[in-house]
């Protein structure tokens, strides 16, 4: 019975030679090292990746070949699996013969039949294209953020500035500049800062808003912050921020009618 079971299970397995061929031909680098980080296996894609034959690198320390940012530091994920970790994936940068390659590598412990750790295995994915794309995305994000904050003259002496996305110190400075310039140019008396589209109001953002409101006040202009949604209101309370005497409104519409009241405007419907 037992023998039969064994026979069955072995018939499910592929023979060692085919397994090796598959491993050799996997189109991404696969490597195994012993506990001293000396290379005991590198598949064909791996040899191509580093541009050497397996015979040349067998037994060499992997760090002397990859020379990566993680090599010989506590970041080395290979060391972590040899020391008992289960599985790690991390981004890294390898330096092979003056070539800098961005990679993502995954490591796992290499165990014998009894489950003892006898080294580590890793496979490497070339990340260069992804890193380039991310760089591009980063630059695009920057451009989107840098698109100047528009100031819209809504009414006589009323200017509205819609704020969308993420506010950082650079952008806050830009908003401040735009607002103060607008105040002198249009002799605005009320500026409405609509933060409805802001992605998160953390303490840094709140700090910027308070500063902007103070500066406008110094220039003899009232600042109303509108677009305080329930989420924003909760965030401000949770953060413990005191907005002081800054006027706030939940909608732009309310802010506008407040502005009308401040300037003693009256909206009358035609009979």
């Amino acid at each position: 019975m037992n023998a039969e079971k064994q026979k069955n299970s072995s018939s499910n397995q592929i023979d060692g030679n085919l397994a090796l061929q598959i491993l050799q031909q996997i189109p991404t680098p696969v490597m195994a090292v012993d506990p001293n980080l000396q290379i005991i296996f590198m598949n064909q894609a791996g040899c191509r990746f580093i541009g050497k034959n397996f015979e040349e690198i067998k037994g060499t320390h992997c760090y002397s070949i990859f020379n990566s940012t993680h090599c010989q530091t506590s970041d080395c994920r290979m060391k972590k699996v040899i020391d008992g970790g289960e599985r790690f994936t991390a981004r890294n940068q390898v330096n092979i013969d003056d070539r800098v390659i961005h990679i993502e590598y995954t490591t796992a412990p290499l165990k014998d039949d009894n489950g003892n750790i006898i080294g580590g295995i890793e496979y490497i994915l070339d990340n260069t294209e992804r890193v380039r794309q991310e760089q591009k995305l980063r630059e695009q994000n920057k451009i989107i953020m840098e698109i100047s904050t528009p100031a819209i003259k809504l009414w006589d002496r009323i200017v509205v500035i819609p704020v969308v996305g993420v506010i950082d110190s650079m952008r806050a400075q830009q908003m401040m500049d735009t607002m103060l310039k607008e105040i002198t140019q249009t002799s605005a008396k009320v500026i409405i800062l609509d933060i409805h589209g802001v992605a998160a109001v953390d303490t840094a953002v709140a700090n910027h808003l308070i500063k902007i409101a103070k500066a406008t006040k110094l220039m003899g202009c009232r600042c109303i912050i509108s677009g305080i949604s329930p989420a924003v209101a909760q965030a401000i309370v949770q953060l413990g921020i005191d907005l002081g005497d800054i006027n706030t409104n939940s909608t732009l519409e309310d802010a506008l009618s407040d502005a009308f009241a401040l300037l003693k405007f009256e909206v009358i419907s035609k009979k």
Binding site: A200, D202, A204, V205, A231, Q234, A235, Q238
Partner: peptide
């Protein structure tokens, strides 16, 4: 919910702003 999403994002933003600053 939306208010909680906003709060959690605010906390995350707080931490990443600290890193940058």
């Amino acid at each position: 919910n939306e208010a909680q999403q906003f709060l959690i994002a605010t906390a995350a933003s707080e931490l990443s702003t600290n890193i940058i600053r």
